[in-house]
């Protein structure tokens, strides 16, 4: 396909779109260079003893990659679609290049596996240990994180509604809730393990306690987020508490509730994983991380962390999607 070269005037009129073709050519070159380096660094004569000229090439590749990223980041794409592609492409390329550097440095300099395994080894380990990883995922995420997150957040929202109904509770619980939100709640993990045993029940308990307060505090804040004018309007309709809640205050609290749900998704994963450091049956992501670290098989630890990272991102991403659908009206999402 031959892209017709835009006339200089037109390119100027479109902004800095003229930078894009050059950057794309550079991108192809850098990619080719990276692929070559990836192949070369695993050759026996290079791995662990890469000579100076190889590192020089890598530095050159780095500079070239920076130039390409710089060009792409500053380019003003001609269409909104192209801009979306660029906005996605730049960070992806950046991340890919970081992983490339990780691989090259660990393999080329012969970094011992017990210090920092290369991504290729982590990937291989991940592919090999899929059944184990899946079991750990089931134990930690499906049995502890998700039930605990749902229970803790739901309880927090429910108590927030109660606080809304009973002003005494609000005045009494809110300062405590705000205070507790700043505490290292993860510390209750050993107590919960003692109370509820080694299995998933104690992890659920930890997650419930950790997610309860953010849900409570955010929901209460959200319930007072509706404007005075809107509340006067409901009053002029002589609307009762339930109607006002349903028609006005819950909808306007939704951005706050989703904020809590998103914060809680991360907290829940952290809570369940760290609670497993205090004792589990021979299963679970936190258990695997702590034991494999003890056995110095860091590739397995990294594989587990990769699973945790993907889980966290997907969990968060799904919530963000739901938020976008529910609070489409919020100024940050509006499209005319």
């Amino acid at each position: 396909m031959s892209a017709p070269a835009p006339s200089p005037d037109l390119a100027r009129a479109r902004g800095r779109a003229d930078g894009i073709p050059a950057a794309l050519v550079g991108l192809v070159a850098v990619t080719a260079g990276c692929l070559w380096a990836l192949g070369a660094v695993h050759r026996p004569d290079l791995a662990g003893q890469a000579p100076a000229w190889f590192w020089g090439t890598i530095v050159a590749l780095w500079l070239a990659a920076w130039w390409v990223t710089d060009r792409l980041a500053k380019a003003v794409p001609p269409t909104p679609g192209a801009r979306r592609v660029l906005d996605l492409m730049v960070p992806l390329l950046f991340g890919a290049f970081l992983i490339f550097l990780w691989e090259i440095v660990t393999v080329g300099a012969g970094v011992p596996m017990v210090l920092m395994p290369p991504p290729s080894a982590i990937g291989a380990r991940l592919a090999q240990s899929l059944p184990t990883l899946a079991e750990d995922f089931g134990q930690t995420v499906l049995r502890a994180v998700i039930p605990g997150w749902a229970l803790g957040s739901g309880l927090g929202i429910a108590i927030a509604l109660l606080c809304d109904r009973v002003p005494f509770l609000r005045r009494g619980l809110m300062p405590i809730g705000n205070f507790v939100s700043a505490l290292p709640m993860i510390g209750i993990a050993p107590i919960m393990v003692m109370w509820f045993g080694f299995d998933w029940q104690s992890k659920v308990a930890v997650v419930v306690v950790m997610t309860f307060f953010p849900a409570l505090v955010n929901t209460v804040a959200g319930l007072s987020a509706s404007g005075a004018l809107e509340r006067d309007l409901m009053r002029s309709y002589a609307a009762d508490w339930a109607t006002t809640l349903l028609k006005l205050r819950l909808p306007s609290a939704m951005p706050f509730v989703f904020n809590a749900l998103k914060i809680n998704s991360t907290l829940a994963l952290i809570g369940a994983i760290v609670a497993e450091f205090f004792g589990t049956p021979i299963l679970g992501m936190g258990f695997r991380i702590s034991t494999e670290v003890g056995r110095m098989s860091l590739d397995m630890v990294w594989a587990e962390i990769a699973v945790a990272a993907v889980t966290g991102s997907v969990f968060y991403g799904l919530l963000a999607l739901a938020e976008r659908r529910v609070t489409f009206w919020h100024p940050s999402y509006r499209r005319r």
Partner: peptide, 13 residues
């Protein structure tokens, strides 16, 4: 969105 604390043991070890 990533449970960064999971990396803690690696850093220590």
């Amino acid at each position: 969105t990533v449970p960064i604390l999971a990396v803690a043991p690696i850093v220590i070890v």
